[in-house]
Structures are given as structure tokens and as C-alpha cells.
């Protein structure tokens, strides 16, 4: 399978890339890791007239901590996130999620920025970023703009990125002590999209009372979903079996999965409930360790 013909640019600065995006508008697509876009182009689901390859732009591959915020450059590869000591220290969820994304070769190419900018509710990082309360930095002709993750996903392959903007960085607040996180997705085979996936970050105080909770759901809704009622059900409570069951029930009710080859709607709702319970337990056990 061969993509339809296209023009190709490989700018070496962000300014140049933004200029090209402004000039060519919807005709152009950003090429990052390419492991969502190129398969779509080969299948002719996508036929952009121009690719703007941003891989040669310096300064988009950092993972750093600054003033209580972890900053992840848009071109950080999945494999780099998988092995980052800084991410491991604050967010054990990254080891969970990167291990479950595609396979080692794809993780050598795929980027965190691309995983979000693709705007696919089947991708895994959207739910993780919802759980972690991330902010997406978009850089455009007028400079940088911070977009809270809850305002980033609009619809099927649609995000808040505007004409001429490139996703350049992901910022995640360093959580307080007593916080941990976990992710799991049910998949039919290695590298599959999730039948259902759940990301959880929890903060517990010294008495075991939950003071903060973030829960994101993968591939069970038209857009990546924050399980807001589930989060509210945990806050101010100790994590008893009943509390956890209530949070799981809300998530299974509030998502909107479609029946497909991966399972029926009913099955997926059940799996959301199971995974919410398990990830709350896993994240809270990591806090106690």
C-alpha cells in the first residue's frame, strides 16, 4: 500500500514549521512519529497534500522538571518516556502505559505529542493526561498558548489546536507526597487498541483519606473521558470496598462505548468498572509502599 502523492518539508525551526502551516492550512499535516498518520495515508483514509516533518526541529525532545512542573517535549518518543527516571519518580503510570502502547519498534518512533495531537480516543495518553491533570502547550504565530487537557479533545480526530498551531510541550504538575498512579488497558493482543482502558492518579493523606483523584478512560467514549463523578466519589473518603465500587459504577455509567469487534457496549461498561476498581487499588498500593 502506497500513500497518495504529497509535498514534503522538513523545517529545522519551529518558526519555519508554523510559517508552512499558516501558508498551507488544512492541506498540510504535521509528521511526528508517523505511526498513526502514515498507516492512514497508506490505507488512503488520509491524503494530506503536504507533510511538515518536525523531527528535525531541536528543542522538542526534553523531559525536565521546573518549578513544580514536569515538562515533556512533543517529540519525546514512547521508548524515552518508558525509561525516564524523572517520569518514573513522579508518575509510575508512564511505565504502565508505555509498556502497553503498540510494540517496541513502534515505541521507538511514536511520540507523546503525536499520541495526543492525533485526537483519537483509542490512544492511551489522553486518558493518562486527564488523570494527571496535564496542560498542553500549543505554539502558533502569536506564541505559546496553554490548553488544559479537559479543553483539548473536541471530537473524533479533533482537538483544540488551531490553524497554524503545533503541539510543542506537555506540562504535568508534580503531585504532592502521598500520590501515585496506575494505568491498564484490556487488549486482545499485544499492541491492540484498548477494549477499555483506565488511568488513575490518587493522593491520600496520612489518615488514608483521598484528597485528590484523577480518572481518565480510554476508548469507551467518542472523546477521551474524565470520569468526574468517580473522582468526586473518592474525594474526602477512605478507600473502602464500597467507595471504590461506587466510583467504578459511576465510570461505567458515564462512559459511552460502542459495540464493535472488541466487545459489546455492556461488556465494555463492565470492563470499565473492573479496571477502575483495579487501578484505584493499584495506585493506592503504590502510595503505601
Amino acid at each position: 500500500m502506497i500513500p497518495a502523492p504529497f509535498e514534503y518539508d522538513a523545517p529545522t525551526t519551529l518558526e519555519e514549521a508554523i510559517g508552512l502551516l499558516q501558508k498551507y492550512g488544512d492541506e498540510a499535516k504535521i509528521l511526528s512519529g508517523g505511526h498513526s498518520l502514515i498507516p492512514m495515508m497508506k490505507l488512503r483514509f488520509a491524503s494530506p497534500e503536504r507533510l511538515i516533518d518536525i523531527n528535525g526541529i531541536a528543542g522538542l525532545s526534553h523531559i525536565s522538571e521546573e518549578n513544580g512542573t514536569v515538562k515533556i517535549g512533543a517529540l519525546v518518543r514512547e521508548v524515552e518516556a518508558e525509561h525516564s527516571d524523572l517520569l518514573k519518580k513522579h508518575f509510575p503510570i508512564f511505565e504502565d502505559v508505555t509498556h502497553l502502547i503498540a510494540d517496541p519498534q513502534v515505541r521507538n518512533m511514536g511520540t507523546l505529542g503525536g499520541n495526543l495531537a492525533h485526537g483519537d480516543a483509542a490512544n492511551d495518553h489522553p486518558a493518562v493526561m486527564i488523570a494527571l491533570g496535564a496542560t498542553v502547550i500549543a505554539t502558533g504565530p502569536d506564541g505559546e498558548r496553554a490548553i488544559p487537557i479537559d479543553e483539548f479533545f473536541y471530537g473524533f480526530y479533533m482537538t483544540a489546536l488551531q490553524h497554524g498551531e503545533i503541539l510543542t510541550e506537555i506540562q504535568i504538575p508534580v503531585p504532592p507526597a502521598g500520590t501515585s498512579s496506575a494505568y491498564h488497558k484490556l487488549e486482545r493482543k499485544v499492541g491492540d487498541y484498548a477494549t477499555a482502558g483506565v488511568a488513575v492518579q490518587l493522593t491520600l493523606d496520612a489518615n488514608g483519606v483521598c484528597t485528590a483523584a484523577g480518572i481518565g478512560l480510554t476508548n469507551v467514549n467518542p472523546v477521551p473521558l474524565r470520569a468526574a463523578r468517580s473522582e468526586a466519589a473518592l474525594i474526602g473518603k477512605t478507600l473502602t470496598t464500597e467507595t471504590i465500587a461506587e466510583a467504578a459504577k459511576y465510570a461505567s455509567e458515564d462512559c459511552s462505548p460502542s459495540s464493535d469487534l472488541r466487545g459489546s457496549e455492556e461488556y465494555k461498561r463492565d470492563m470499565v468498572a473492573v479496571l477502575v476498581k483495579r487501578m484505584i487499588k493499584k495506585a493506592s498500593e503504590r502510595i503505601l509502599i
Binding site: 500500500m1 508517523g34 505511526h35 502514515i38 498507516p39 497508506k42 519498534q105 513502534v106 521507538n108 518512533m109
Partner: peptide, 22 residues
């Protein structure tokens, strides 16, 4: 379709699926 890995090569020392790289 970047599933089977038969086309795996090393690109700057990293294994990648060459059917999904231009």
C-alpha cells in the same frame, strides 16, 4: 501495516518497521 515486524531494520541504531517510515 506495522503489525508483523518482518520489515524491521535499524534506523540510527533503533529498530523500526520500515513499512511505516518514509
Amino acid at each position: 501495516t506495522s503489525s508483523c515486524g518482518a520489515c524491521t531494520i535499524l534506523l540510527n541504531g533503533k529498530s523500526v518497521k520500515s513499512c511505516t517510515v518514509l
